[in-house]
């Protein structure tokens, strides 16, 4: 990327980056600014509109069926799979939450995921700042090392990780799992954050240094607040795969008290495969936090999904 223009122009570019209409994280060139002018007719007219909404229904109906089925009784579900969930029954949730141990699994998932996201976002923000600003060649080299991790299929290293954990006493430990996830989030977080730090004008730091601020003060008080949108994107986007991951807890956790939701769900499904209502409730419990996250942070998730487009 070329040298960032100084002053107000650069600040404008930065706001543009965080709020492009498509939620794309990449800075847009001049050709990206066209949509508003010369309004053209949408392709396909009304027929296409109908098709697009029908497809939206197809994407959503299975999830809605999952939700509605979780509020019905097992007998109801078997006699009429497509019936309405009236009157609402919360028995399935009561059963899954207490007898099915979902309360425990839920707490474990929350602990591991939040811990890992906090860890990887913190260390990556610090590293990204140094990689964006360091002039020595070693930083270029370190950056490529981190970015190589974007392509590494970390799941294939499960055996060495298993023995590493075995030696360090981290088997069957939620802390170990959080450390593992924290590390695996570093490449993506550094990738996104470095791009953002590079777009900030250098004058800010020079001014802060002249005023006697230390490197840490400059970073924490001035730079971090400016990249807050990118930090939010990284944190929100990393939350989803960690919350959903299955292989690592399957291999690294042993006792049921420490299971995260995906592994707990597998156990529950194995033991209660015919208690459909309770299984549906378990599926909803596993999904709810992500839906809530999506509703409050759609922009960050969409930006994360398209971050791969940035060069």
């Amino acid at each position: 990327m070329s040298v960032v223009p100084a002053g107000i122009g650069a600040a404008d570019e930065r706001t543009d980056v965080t709020s492009t209409p498509d939620g794309v994280l990449a800075p847009k060139g001049p050709s990206g600014r066209r949509g508003t002018r010369g309004r053209q007719k949408p392709v396909g007219g009304r027929t296409a509109s109908v098709l697009l909404w029908v497809y939206a229904a197809f994407a959503l109906v299975p999830l809605l069926l999952m939700l509605s089925s979780s509020f019905r009784s097992n007998g109801d579900l078997i006699s009429d799979p497509l019936g309405a969930p009236w009157p609402l029954s919360f028995d399935a949730y009561r059963e899954a939450w207490t007898a099915g141990n979902f309360a425990t699994y839920f707490g474990n998932s929350l602990l591991v995921t939040l811990g890992a996201v906090l860890l990887s976002t913190t260390v990556s923000t610090m590293a990204a700042y140094a990689l964006a600003r360091g002039r020595s060649r070693i930083f270029r080299w370190l950056e490529s090392l981190f970015l190589s991790g974007l392509m590494l299929p970390i799941h294939l290293a499960i055996l060495p990780i298993f023995y590493l954990f075995d030696g360090a006493g981290l088997i069957d430990s939620r802390l170990g799992l959080a450390l593992m996830y924290g590390a695996s989030g570093v490449p993506f977080s550094i990738f996104v954050l470095t791009t953002f730090f590079r777009q900030l004008p250098a004058e800010l730091e020079e001014a802060a240094t002249l005023d006697g601020a230390t490197a840490w003060q400059t970073f924490w008080r001035i730079m971090v607040p400016l990249v807050r949108p990118a930090v939010a994107t990284v944190a929100v986007f990393r939350f989803v795969p960690i919350w959903n991951d299955f292989l690592f807890p399957l291999v690294l956790l042993r006792t049921q008290d420490k299971y995260t939701l995906p592994v707990g769900l597998t156990t529950f499904f194995g033991e209660n495969a015919t208690n459909y209502a309770a299984v549906f409730a378990g599926l909803v419990i596993t999904t709810i936090p992500l839906i809530v996250l999506f509703l409050v942070a759609t922009k960050q998730i969409v930006a994360g999904l398209t971050a791969g487009m940035a060069k």
Binding site: L119, S120, T122, V123, S124, M126, A127, Y129, A130, L131, R133, G134, S136, I138, F139, L142, L145, F146, G149, L152, I154, L156, A157, P160, I161, L164, L179, M180, G182, A183, S184, V186, P187, I190, A215, F219
Partner: peptide
């Protein structure tokens, strides 16, 4: 700069690079 990078590098090195 290296001080800022160290925590990320240690974490990434121990739990990703070394096992890989």
């Amino acid at each position: 700069g290296l001080l800022f990078v160290t925590p990320a590098l240690a974490l990434f090195g121990v739990f990703v690079l070394y096992p890989m």
